[in-house]
Amino acid sequence: MRSVIRRAVAGGAVLATALVGPLSLPAHSAPASLYAPSALVMTTGHGENAGTAVPERAVTVNCAYTTTGTHPDPRQACADLDRVNGNLDRLATLRANAADSRCTMEYRPVVVTVQGVWRGTRVNYEHTFANACIKDTQAALALTF
């Protein structure tokens, strides 16, 4: 008789766990933020492409709800990114018609890379400038660090 009672209690416990267990767990976890993630790592270095460039500097920019990062001016960098709606090709030539573009014709390539997430979309970008002067006069502030 005791074995029948034990089986009934054990069966009832299993049934109760199966029925009530899922009710005690949250259906979905709430998102950490209502804003799409926007966190980027930007690097610059001398070389023709990212694979051969000697890295010189790397900065971070976080443009979600609050603007943070190691970029010298993260607010302006995020404003530049917003201005071109995340189109990094436009960002590389945003100031191409600048009046102060008196650069030498030397070829000492500088490559800029941007990797991370912009407004929820994965980013993997690379742009090579002929020299540092051209990068500083043509590119938006976001890429001049």
Rank of each mutant, 00 (worst) to 15 (best):
S33N: 10
A39M: 07
P37G: 04
D73G: 01
C78H: 00
N85A: 11
T68E: 02
V123M: 03
V54Q: 12
C78M: 04
Y107K: 14
N124Q: 13
G21N: 09
V114F: 00
N85G: 10
A36V: 05
R102N: 15
V61T: 05
A99E: 12
A27K: 11
A98E: 11
G116S: 06
A64I: 09
A79E: 04
V111K: 01
V110S: 02
A13D: 06
T93G: 07
E48T: 09
A77N: 00
E56V: 11
C78F: 03
S101W: 05
R57L: 11
T67A: 05
G45L: 06
Q115C: 04
A77P: 00
L15G: 08
L91A: 05
Q115K: 15
L81Q: 03
D73S: 08
P74K: 08
A58S: 13
V20E: 13
R90A: 07
R122F: 10
P109F: 06
L23K: 08
N124V: 07
G116K: 04
S24Y: 13
C78G: 03
P55W: 06
D100I: 14
G51A: 13
A58P: 03
V59H: 07
D80N: 15
A30V: 13
E48G: 10
G120Q: 05
V61Q: 00
G51N: 12
Y65C: 03
A64G: 15
A30H: 11
R83Y: 14
C63M: 04
G11E: 12
R122T: 11
S101T: 14
V123Y: 04
V61R: 00
C103A: 10
A13Q: 08
T67I: 15
T67P: 03
N97G: 15
Y107M: 12
S33A: 15
T44E: 13
A99Y: 10
R119S: 12
A18P: 07
G51W: 07
V59F: 10
L88W: 01
Y107T: 14
Y125F: 15
L91N: 00
